[in-house]
Design a protein around this nucleic acid. Structure first.
Lengths: 336, 336
DNA sequence: TTGTACGCGTTATCAA
DNA sequence: TTGATAACGCGTACAA
C-alpha cells in the first residue's frame, strides 16, 4: 500500500543484541535483573534501530492503555480551550495522550463518540464541557462502567462526580461588589443559559453582594454566551431599566456586545453605565472601552483535573470530590 | 484497583451464542459466510452483552490503527481551532479518532510528543499549525518514515507535502483592492511574523492589488498576530505615516487592536482611517466599529484535510498536492 | 542474570 | 457454513 517501513519490534532488537527479547523487555521497563553491560548494549541498539515499544501490544497485555478521552463541545469557547491546553500538557508529562471526543454542540450523537472512545480502551475520561441536562444519561453510563471520570466545570446533582472548577459564587460576588462599591446602585445582570451550574453560582454571588451592601438587585436577562445574545439582552435591559447604572455580564463576549448595544443606544461606558465581564479573554484588553473582568485560572483547571484523573486511574481515591480555584478581578476602563 | 468491570470479549459472546469466536468475528466484520439465523443470534447477544470489539487487539493483528495524530500549537488561535472542529467531525464520520499532539508553542519538545504519537501507532498525522522553520526537521522525519501526512496551512519549501489551505494571495488581493476602490490611496499593512507562508502570500496579494490599480504601496509593519502587536504596530504606522488613509491587517486581532491604537491617537475609524482584517472571528461583528474582514472556510479546510489523510492511509495517491479554498470579503463599518 | 512458555483480543488462513 | 490454529508485540511467571 503505502511505503510504511516495517515496524522495528522487540525481537529485532533482541536479535541484533544477541539476547532474548525478554532481556530487552527488562531493559525497557527498568527491571533490576540485567547485567550493566547487557543493558548498555541493548540501549545502544534500541537507539540505533530507532525502536519504540508498541503501545498497542503493551496495552493488550497490560489490559490498560495510557490513553485518555477528552469530551468537549465548543473549541471556540475560550474557557474550555484553555482547560484543554493545560490538560494536554499535564497528560504528556505523565506519558498519557488525549483522544479527542466530540467537539460538536449536538449532544445527541454522544453515544457514537463514546462508543468510539470505549473501543479505544481509554483509561479515563475528562469532561471539559459545561453541564447541561442532556448528557446526564451518558455520564451515568460512564460512571456505572467504572471508568475513571473527572469533569471540569461539569456538575451533576445526583452523581458523585469529581469536579475541578472555578469558584463561581466568589467570582460573581466580587464582580458585583466591585460595581456596587463604585456606586451603590442596583447591578443588572446578563446571565448564561439556564441549567448551567456556573450561571446559578455567579448569580448567587451577584445576589449575595447586593445583600452584603444592602442594595436591591437590578434586572436580569438571560443570554447564551454569544455576542449576539449579549447585544440583544443589552438592548432589553435598557428598555426595562432606562436609568441603568451598572451591568455584570457573565462572560466577556456578552459584555463586549452589550457595551456595543449601549453605545448604539447613545449611552457611554463607563460614564453612563459601568460593565464587568467574566473570563478575561485576550481581547478584553483591547476592545473599547477595555473590559473589567474576572480572570479564571483555566489552564490550571485542566492541569489539576488531568492530574486527579491519572491518580484515579492508578487506583488512588481522590481526596476531594470538588476542587475550586479562585478568580481574580481585573479592573480596566469599562468600570472606571 | 478501581471498579472497572472486566471487558466483554469476543469469546464471551461466542460462548453465550454457542458458536466459535471465529463466527462472531465474521459477524462483526460483515463477512458473507455466515448463516442468517446464526448472524441474528450473535447480533442479539452482542447487543445484550454490550460487547464492543477492542480496537487495541484489532490494531495489533491488522497492523494499523484508526487513530490519527493531530499536531497543533495554539488552541486560542481561531483559525486552527475551527480547522480542528472540521477535522474531528470528518474523522468521526470515517471511524477514526484524533489523538492530541502538542498544543504548546515551544517547538523544542516536539520529539517527545512525536514519540508518544508513534508509540500509539497512529495511522497518519494532521499538521494543523502554521509553518515555522523549526519543525522542518520533524516533518522530514515523519515523511521519511512513510507516515501519511497532511498539513493545513503548513508549507515547506523543499518537502513535497500535501497541503490544504486558503488562497491567501487572493485574500490579500481582495482585502487591499476593497480599500483601494474606496479611495485610491496607499494601503498600509500590518503583517504576521516573518517566515509564515500565509504572511508572504497575503503580502503578495496586497502588492498585486496596488499594482493593478496603479497605486504606490503604503508602509508595512510586522506584528505577531497578537492584540498587543496590533496595538504597537498601529502606533508605529501612525508615526511613520501621519496621513494614513487605509490599513490592511493580516488578522482580525491585530486589526481590532490597531483600531484601538488609532482611536487612542485621536483618529476615527473609518472616517479618518479605513481598516480591513482577516479571519472573520466571531467578535468582528460586535467590536466598535464592526470589522470588515476576509472570511476563511476553516472547518472546510479541516474536513478536506482529514478526508485526504484517510484516503492517503488507504493507499490512494492524492490528486493534488495543494488544495486552496477561497476567502470571502465581509464588508462592515471599519471600511465604510 | 537470562531464557522459555503463555496469554492479552482479535483477524486471517486453512481444514472440516 | 463453521471451527481450529497461528499470528500480531509485548509483559509476567517460572524455569534454567
Amino acid at each position: 500500500m503505502n511505503g510504511l517501513k516495517r515496524r522495528v519490534t522487540i525481537k529485532d532488537v533482541a536479535a541484533s543484541a544477541g539476547v532474548s527479547y525478554q532481556t530487552v523487555s527488562r531493559v525497557i521497563n527498568d527491571h533490576p535483573d540485567v547485567a550493566p553491560e547487557t543493558r548498555e548494549r541493548v540501549i545502544e541498539i534500541i537507539r540505533n534501530l530507532d525502536y519504540r515499544p508498541s503501545a498497542i501490544a503493551r496495552s493488550l497485555v497490560l489490559e490498560r492503555t495510557r490513553t485518555l478521552g477528552l469530551i468537549t463541545q465548543d473549541l471556540s469557547d475560550y474557557f474550555f480551550t484553555q482547560v484543554i491546553v493545560g490538560a494536554e500538557r499535564e497528560a504528556r508529562k505523565q506519558g498519557y495522550v488525549f483522544v479527542l471526543g466530540s467537539t460538536e454542540r449536538n449532544a445527541q450523537d454522544e453515544p457514537a463518540y463514546l462508543q468510539l472512545l470505549l473501543e479505544h480502551q481509554i483509561a479515563g475520561i475528562l469532561f471539559a464541557r459545561p453541564s447541561t441536562e442532556r448528557d446526564q444519561r451518558h455520564i451515568k453510563a460512564i460512571v456505572e462502567r467504572g471508568l475513571p471520570l473527572v469533569t471540569s466545570a461539569y456538575h451533576a446533582e445526583d452523581l458523585d462526580l469529581t469536579v475541578v472548577d472555578v469558584d463561581n459564587i466568589d467570582g460573581g460576588y466580587w464582580a458585583t461588589r466591585h460595581l456596587l462599591e463604585k456606586e451603590p446602585a442596583p447591578v443588572a445582570m446578563i446571565t448564561g443559559p439556564a441549567g448551567w451550574r456556573s450561571v446559578n453560582e455567579r448569580t448567587e454571588g451577584w445576589r449575595r453582594a447586593h445583600a452584603a451592601l444592602g442594595v436591591k438587585p437590578g434586572p436580569v436577562e438571560q443570554g447564551d454566551w454569544s455576542y449576539e445574545s449579549g447585544y440583544q439582552t443589552g438592548r432589553r435591559l435598557l428598555k426595562r431599566a432606562p436609568k441603568l447604572k451598572a451591568v455584570f455580564a457573565q462572560n466577556d463576549r456578552m459584555a463586549i456586545a452589550a457595551i456595543r448595544a449601549f453605545r448604539d443606544a447613545g449611552r457611554q461606558v463607563p460614564q453612563n453605565i459601568r460593565v464587568v465581564g467574566y473570563d478575561d479573554v485576550p481581547e478584553a484588553r483591547y476592545v473599547h472601552p477595555s473590559l473589567t473582568t474576572m480572570r479564571q485560572p483555566m489552564q490550571e483547571v485542566g492541569r489539576i483535573a488531568t492530574q486527579i484523573l491519572v491518580e484515579t486511574i492508578n487506583g488512588k481515591q481522590p481526596e476531594h470530590r470538588e476542587v475550586l480555584l479562585k478568580t481574580e478581578l481585573i479592573v480596566r476602563e469599562s468600570s472606571s
